[in-house]
Structures are given as C-alpha cells and as structure tokens.
C-alpha cells in the first residue's frame, strides 16, 4: 500500500468519524481555527505590548531631568552585585576550556594554539552569552520579581495617580544601567576566563606561559572584541526589556494568576524567555559578524 493511499484512507476514516459522531465539519474547522488562532492572537498582542513598552522606555531616557540616582542604584544592583558571580563563573569556564582545549589539541600536536582557542571562544561567544545568562539569573529574575510585586501591591497604580510616568520611573533607568553593566561585565568575564585558561593550560598542563599569552595577543583582533560588545549591548536590551516587561505586566499572565503566584510566573517566564532570546540573538548576530 503506497503512502498516498494510506493518507487518503486516514482522511476518509476521519471524515466518516466526524459525520458519524454528529459534529458538523463547519464546527470542527471553526474549533480548529479557534484552537490555533487564540494563542497566536494573544502572542501577537503580547509582542505588540512588549514593543510599545520598550519604545516608551527608550523614549523616556533622554527626557529631563536625568534620573542619575536611579541609574546609579541600578548599576550597583545589576553590575556591582553581579561581579562576584561573573568572576567565579568566568574563572571556571576558562579553566574548563583550558583543560578541554588541551586534551583536544594535544592529539593533533597543536596544543600551542590553546591560547588562541580559549581567547577567541571567550571573546566571541562564551563571554557575552554566559555573562548575559548569569546576569539574567541573578539580576533579571530579581528585577521581574521586584516590579511584579510593585504591580501586585498597587505601587505602579500609585505612580499613575501621582502623575509619575511608571515606565520612565521603573524601566528607563534599568535599560541605561544594563547597557553600561553588560559590556563591562563581559570584559571582566573575558579577561578572567583567559586567565583561567592560563591556569589550567599552562600551570597545570605545562604549556609554555609565553606561548599561551603570545597566542592570545596574536589571535585576538579588534573586530572580535567589538563583536562581543555588540552582542552584550543587544543582550542588555533583551534582558532589561523582557525582565521589566514580565514584572510590569505580571497581572496579565495566560493563567489569570495574581498575587504571589502571578509574581512567580512572571519571574520564571522572564528568566526562561530572556535565556531563549539571548541564544537566538547570539546566532543572528554571529551570522552577521562571521
């Protein structure tokens, strides 16, 4: 029996089932469209709201008076408080790269290229991506939860009644702080990661220290560093926007949950969506840069 005839049989069995069970085809089709259409239209609506939220936040950044104090607070929260976790992650990432790189390269007799492999992997890919994911986990989740609690406890409504633009008050300082912190933390990640590779590659596995550092210096070009920074700027916008947006609209989730449950859903979806979009944008930017 050919594949086409199996398909036809299946279709007719389905059709007989539909007629037999008394459900009209028209209703079936309308239910099918409804099932597909509802989530799709709510997704489009949510995307539109996200874009409007993002543009409103960007538009408020240059509006006077500048919110220096709030920006500095956020730099402290997103940047300074994430520094330790970034340094720790980068050190071990570099050390693992050094070990894995050494065992892979030594089979081809090219272990001298370890410095290049570690530095380029970190600067082009791992540095921006892992930094963004670590900041999302530490600061992004807290951002979504904090704004979510503000929404649930009517603090955002209170801003509206006081004629204070809530998007400007809550979101704009976070975008600016993220744009400053992400590239800086990425730079820390790269430098400490290269040093981690040096520790495992040179001090543990015995690659010549000068060769390692020389390969790092030789292989890294300015375009690699700029590429990494472009990624970290984009990731800053992605993380700050998604995490703030999820918190801001914590009362408007698919499951109709409010209160603590609503905040928990907002935080979870902020972290998951930020991580997914970081990886998607990483691919898109890389495809333009290579």
């Amino acid at each position: 029996m050919s594949l086409v005839s199996i398909q036809y049989s299946c279709f007719f069995y389905f059709l007989f089932f539909v007629i037999d069970s008394g459900i009209s085809l028209k209703i079936m089709i309308s239910r099918l469209i409804e099932t597909i259409g509802n989530p799709f239209s709510s997704y489009i609506e949510s995307l539109g709201r996200l874009i409007r939220f993002f543009l409103a936040g960007i538009r408020q950044i240059p509006v006077l008076p500048f919110q220096w104090n709030k920006i500095l607070d956020q730099i402290g929260f997103i940047g300074a408080k994430s520094l330790f976790v970034i340094l720790l992650t980068s050190m071990f990432t570099g050390m693992v790269l050094g070990l894995q790189g050494y065992y892979s390269l030594v089979t081809f007799g090219s272990e001298a290229a370890l410095g290049s492999a570690v530095a380029l992997s970190l600067i082009r890919e791992l540095g921006p991506v892992l930094t963004a994911i670590m900041i999302t986990a530490r600061a992004g989740s807290a951002m979504a939860a904090e704004i979510g609690v503000m929404r649930m406890s009517e603090q955002i409504d209170a801003l509206v009644t006081m004629q204070i633009n809530p998007v400007r008050f809550i979101f704009s300082p976070r975008i600016v702080a993220a744009l400053i912190c992400f590239p800086l933390l990425t730079a820390f990640f790269d430098v400490v990661g290269i040093f981690g590779g040096f520790l495992s590659g040179s001090l543990l596995m015995g690659i010549n220290e000068t060769v390692y550092m020389d390969k790092v210096i030789q292989s890294v070009k300015m375009i690699d560093i700029w590429g990494g920074f472009i990624k970290s700027f984009v990731f800053a916008l992605v993380v700050a926007t998604i995490c703030s947006y999820r918190g801001y609209f914590a009362h408007m989730n698919n499951q109709g949950q409010t209160g603590a449950k609503g905040v928990s859903l907002a935080t979870t979806s902020a972290v998951v969506q930020s991580c997914i979009w970081i990886l998607i944008f990483d691919y898109v930017i890389t495809s333009f840069l290579v």
Binding site: M150, S153, E154, Q155, Q163, I164
Partner: peptide, 24 residues
C-alpha cells in the same frame, strides 16, 4: 490613598512622602 497604602518598599518614609514633589 490606597487601601493597602501602596507605599514603595525601596524608599524610606520621607522619600515616600516626598515622591510626588521630587518627581513632578
């Protein structure tokens, strides 16, 4: 004046009261 006060928990009492004046 909100039922549950809607005070900003990251601001002090003074900052909460002063907020409408400092911002607007």
């Amino acid at each position: 004046m909100f039922q549950d006060n809607a005070l900003f928990d990251f601001l002090t009492a003074f900052e909460n009261i002063a907020l409408p004046l400092t911002e607007t």
